[in-house]
Amino acid sequence: MSLATKTEERSAPGKLAWLFKGDNLFGYLMMAPAIGVLFMFFAYPLFYEVYSSFTDRTVGHAGKFIGLKNYIFLLEDPTYIKAAINTLVYVSCVQIGKFILGLGIALLLQQKLFGRGLWRALVLVPYAMPGFVAYMVWKLIYNPDVGALNIFLNQVGLIDTHIAFLSDGHYAMPAVVIATIWRGFPFWTIMFLAALQAVPKELYEAAAIDGGNAWHRFRHISLPGIRPVILIVFMLSTVSTINSFEAVWLTTGGGPADATLILPVFAYRGLVQFQIGQSAAAALSLMPVILAFVILILRKLKKD
């Protein structure tokens, strides 16, 4: 027997000794179900999707490993490029809109208003409403024949004809963006409101004594006070908006002529065309961007 083998034999039980120290084993056993669930419902599907994206798998056919071909195919596909650009535009506009509306209404609801509790509850309605209902309502609002928006714009004299907001390439994206902002801003408002209430009142009093106006108080007290919350909300909401499917699917289906086609809808279309490998690649193609974005936000949070 060589010296090396002897050493291995001696050190093997020693290596596992830490497991039996104190409550270690019990602790790991308690964690095992949670780890199992995470693996089953998160890690396994993710790895399976990553693997599928490197295959030519279609419905009913397991396919074979084809390396980066799916990704190369996507980069050469003008529809994918359009979907990627649309996604960038859609997410940017929606996030800016949610931030402005969310923060503005949070600041308003922080003031001493009549029926403030009721307003705070009402602002949650769009967020509490099922997405399907919310977007079908918006589809009705935008309807060129009987939609409330067309009727309103006609009555106030802003337009003299009916506009097909969701069917016109120029209006479709702004229309979907507005509907998405409306549905999502309450989350921002509530988070900002909670954060604003945690900012010490003494700071505002001190600023008032020093002659600071409302803008100064907002710029130098409120904004820095809620900065960590802004970053967290921004991160969570951006990730969820990038993966947003129902807003576009229920209102325009990605049309007209791909004017509102975003990557989740593009991936879904691939799936109904039986292209599992290509769809997986499309769905994962933004993963590096999302990861970079999350890492950037987390670093900023750490610095703060």
Partner: peptide, 8 residues
């Protein structure tokens, strides 16, 4: 129809 492109 003006909404023919968003049809289901």
């Amino acid at each position: 129809a003006s909404d023919s492109v968003t049809s289901d």
